[in-house]
Computed example of a mutant assay.
Amino acid sequence: MSKYQVNEKGYYGNFGGAYIPEMLYPNVEELRQQYLTIMQRPDFRAEFNQLLKDYVGRPSPLYLARRLSERYKANVFLKREDLNHTGAHKINNTIGQILLAERLGKKRIIAETGAGQHGVATATVCALKGLECVVYMGAVDIERQAPNVARMKMMGAEVVAANSGSKTLKDATNEALRDWINNPVDTHYIIGSVVGPHPYPDMVARFQSVISEETKRQLLEQTGRENPDFAIACVGGGSNAIGMFYHFLDEPTVRLVAVEAAGLGVESGESAATTALGREGVLHGSRSILMQTADGQVVEPYSISAGLDYPGIGPQHAWLYTSGRAQYSSITDDEAMKAGLLLTRLEGIIPAIESAHALAQLEKMTFRKDDNVVVCLSGRGDKDLDNYMKYFGF
């Protein structure tokens, strides 16, 4: 078994576990006991794969970005998760979890969302399966991601504003956990990233691993080599990055690069660069690395991208960071916005601001001309047009 995957106790090295109130124990334990068995059933695999193909539109293309490649003097490939139904990688996980919830007999679905892409993906699969859907979203994010809020409501989801704390993703997660405690029997909580108590980080990673699984096949087809030299992805909680890294974790020749949000600068006090600023602690049900004060209070994160302003990272990322298997760096708002505009001008693709952080990392790297570099383009920029327009004064 890979030393980078979860062990039988729910840990990645020192990180992971299930630090939960007693009231949540039955929900989490039911999942832990059944998720692998259900996911391995032939009927589950068949329906999951069929929906990914015919509903989501997978495989998503692996696109050799020629003008970007000229600029960075390497073969730069974009894994086009932005072309999935709903516009991001999030749908891979919500399809998997809704099938799991169905088989567990759950009739009501709750979720948290930051940028709104996970909320949209959850509302989408609930509409598909005819299940009740409640999405918790920070009041600040509701304002800056209005098109996604409209999509969720159109799908029939109830969107509930989180008005505590920084009114962003952390607070939406807190509200969703409260709901789950109050509705333990009929409700399944679809967590949108590789965070939360075990088995969520492992379960979400398995659903997102389709990203690297396809990449290996597509690279082999296009280049004759199935492993890239570099795999690069942005990290908030970290699900698109784990999906991008999953099948390369035990391939030492593949350099894994995870990109966090530095906001206004790592030391500015307005940042979400967890690995640079954080230390070990417990957040949202697992032991990981998080931004906290000397007395253990969670520090409010900041990023121009609603999907990256999370004060922690998933426990598997914490292990990849501390073990040295992956490199973790951070990109400022300014660097990300410029990278987003650059991709748009060079390739005619408008990336989500989250994904633009990963693209900005290319500016800080040097490559050999035959290097194959894969960047996970985790989402499309439609939801961020207002932000782009304000920032550049269009």
Rank of each mutant, 00 (worst) to 15 (best):
Q117M: 09
K364L: 07
G278T: 07
S69W: 11
A205D: 11
E363D: 13
D43C: 07
S166F: 05
K53G: 01
V210A: 14
P315C: 15
S303W: 04
Q208R: 15
K170A: 06
Y55P: 00
F248L: 10
V235M: 09
T94S: 09
A360T: 08
Q40R: 15
L99I: 15
V185N: 15
V266F: 07
Y189I: 12
G138R: 05
G348D: 10
D82P: 04
Y19A: 01
N183Y: 15
I232H: 02
L68H: 04
D333H: 10
V373N: 05
R32N: 14
E47I: 05
V125F: 10
E132S: 09
N163G: 13
I20C: 13
M244S: 10
A65F: 12
D309Q: 04
R108W: 04
D382S: 13
G312E: 14
G348E: 11
Q50H: 15
P61K: 12
A88K: 06
S323M: 12
V298W: 11
S2R: 10
E175T: 01
N49M: 15
H317T: 05
M291T: 01
D202H: 09
A272I: 01
D186Y: 14
L52F: 07
A352F: 03
S212C: 03
E143R: 14
K53T: 14
V195N: 13
